[in-house]
Nucleic acid binder design. Structure first.
Lengths: 224, 224
DNA sequence: CGCTTACTTGAACTCACTCAAAATTCGTGG
DNA sequence: CCACGAATTTTGAGTGAGTTCAAGTAAGCG
C-alpha cells in the first residue's frame, strides 16, 4: 500500500504540495528484471511510480537494436502523460527487479479540475524530462565515449543523491554494460574498455552492481 | 498584427480551440539570420511564435561548439514554458531571417485559471517536443550519417507539409551544412560528402536554399 | 558441478574526423 | 550589371575513435 507522497523517495521530492494525491488508492506491483512493462503505442490506464529498482524508457529500432532514452530511478514516474489518454511513444523495460505503485489515471484527471496546482506540477515534470533529454542529446552528438560515461554516471549520482539513495560517492548500479552501451550509443566491448581506462585513471569504478566515484572533480572535468 | 490563431499556419494546427487566445494583444518582430534571440538561462517574459523563417534551439558547449536541439519552423513556439517563469534551458538562434509574434506570458497565466483546455493544449506541446527529442536521440545514438540526414529531412518535410509549407516533395531549406552538422553530430565536410552521395543515388537534392526529395520511398527505407 | 549470462581482451576494419586548399555561391557597393 | 570580398561548399589525404567478430574468462545459479 502506497500513495504518491507516503514514501521516503516522494518526500525527498519536496516542494510540490501533492497532499491531494494521497487520497488516490493505488496498487503495488513487482516486475522482474528485463521484463517489458509498457510497450510503445499502448495507452496505459494507470500512471506508475517507481519505488525500488531501475527501469529504462526504450525504443526498439527496425533492425532490432535498442536505444535507451533514460533510466528511471526510484521516485520517478515511468510516464508523464497524466492528463491525456494518448499512446506512449516508448516502451518501458525493467533493468533490475522493480517494485512500483500504480495510480488510475482517471483519478488524476478528475482532480486536475479542482487542483490548479496539478497543472503546474505536471509542467515541472515535463520540463525536467525535456531538459534531461536535451542534455543527453548534446552528449550523444559531440562527446567521446569516456566523456559520455562520465556524464551519465554523474547524472545518475545527482538524481540518486537528491532522493537519498547514494551514500557519499557510492551507489547501487544494477545496469549492465549492454544497458550503458544502449544508452550512450556505444557497444558493450567498448564500454568495457572505457570503464577499464577510467578505473586505471582512478576516476570511477563500476562493477558488482555498485558504482564508486573515486575522483568527483576529475570526473566532472572530464564530462564538462 | 497577429494573434495565436489568426495566421494560416495556426489554422493548420487545427483541433485545439484557442479562440480565447485571440484576445491577447501581441507585437510582431523581425530577427536577422544568425542573430541570437534568447539566451540559455534567461527568463523571457514573452512567448514567441514563429511566423516565417527557421530558428534553432541550441546549446553552446564548454569548448565553444554548438549543438542544435531542434529546428523551429513557422507555426512553432520557440519556447514551451508558458505557465512558469523558469529560465530556459537553451538558446534560440535565427537560422534564416525570422518574423515572429510575441505574447506576454502573464496573459497566458491569467487565462490558464479560467481555461481548463489550456493545460491540455500545453501538455500536447510538451508531449510533441519530447517525442521529437526522443526521435532525435535514437538517430544520434544508432544511425550512420546518411540515415541521420534522411531522417532529419523526412521529419522537416512532414512538419512543413502539416502546415502547408511544402508543395509535393519540395520545400524551402534555408539551413546551411554547418546547421545540419550541428544538428546531427557531424562535420560540414562530411555533410557535403553525404549529400553528394544521396544526390548521386537519386534520393535527395539539397542546394540553393531548397530541398527536393527525389525518392520518398527510398529515403524512408534508408531512414528506417 | 555444469550451464548460462556477463564481462574482458584481441585484431582487423570502417566510418567519420581533421586539416588544408580549391572552387563555388552570395552579398554588396561601384 | 558587373566586380570584388566574404561566406559557404566541395574535394583530398591522412588519422583515429569506435566497431565487428571472435575467442576466452569470470561470475552467478540451478
Amino acid at each position: 500500500e502506497c500513495s504518491l507522497s507516503s514514501t521516503s523517495v516522494c518526500h525527498a521530492l519536496g516542494k510540490c504540495d501533492h497532499a491531494f494525491l494521497e487520497t488516490s488508492r493505488s496498487r503495488q506491483i513487482t516486475v522482474p528484471a528485463k521484463r517489458m512493462l509498457i510497450r510503445e503505442g499502448e495507452t496505459p490506464a494507470e500512471v506508475f511510480r517507481l519505488l525500488s529498482g531501475w527501469g529504462a524508457r526504450i525504443k526498439i529500432l527496425a533492425d532490432g537494436s535498442r536505444q535507451i532514452l533514460t533510466f528511471c530511478l526510484p521516485g520517478d514516474f515511468l510516464t508523464v502523460e497524466m492528463l491525456h489518454d494518448v499512446p506512449v511513444t516508448f516502451s518501458v523495460q525493467a533493468v533490475s527487479e522493480m517494485t512500483l505503485c500504480a495510480f488510475p489515471k482517471k483519478h488524476l484527471i478528475e482532480q486536475s479540475f479542482t487542483q490548479p496546482d496539478l497543472a503546474a506540477f505536471i509542467e515541472q515534470l515535463w520540463a525536467q524530462r525535456v531538459s534531461d533529454l536535451e542534455e543527453r542529446l548534446v552528449g550523444l552528438g559531440r562527446l567521446s565515449a569516456d566523456r559520455r560515461i562520465a556524464g551519465l554516471v554523474l547524472d545518475l549520482h545527482r538524481r540518486l543523491k537528491m532522493r537519498g539513495l547514494a551514500t557519499g560517492n557510492e551507489f547501487a548500479f544494477p545496469a549492465r554494460h549492454e544497458d550503458i552501451a544502449d544508452t550512450l550509443g556505444l557497444t558493450p566491448p567498448h564500454v568495457s574498455r572505457t570503464l577499464t581506462a577510467l578505473r586505471q585513471d582512478k576516476l570511477l569504478e563500476i562493477g558488482g552492481g555498485r558504482a564508486v566515484i573515486l575522483d568527483y572533480g576529475g570526473l566532472e572535468k572530464l564530462a564538462a
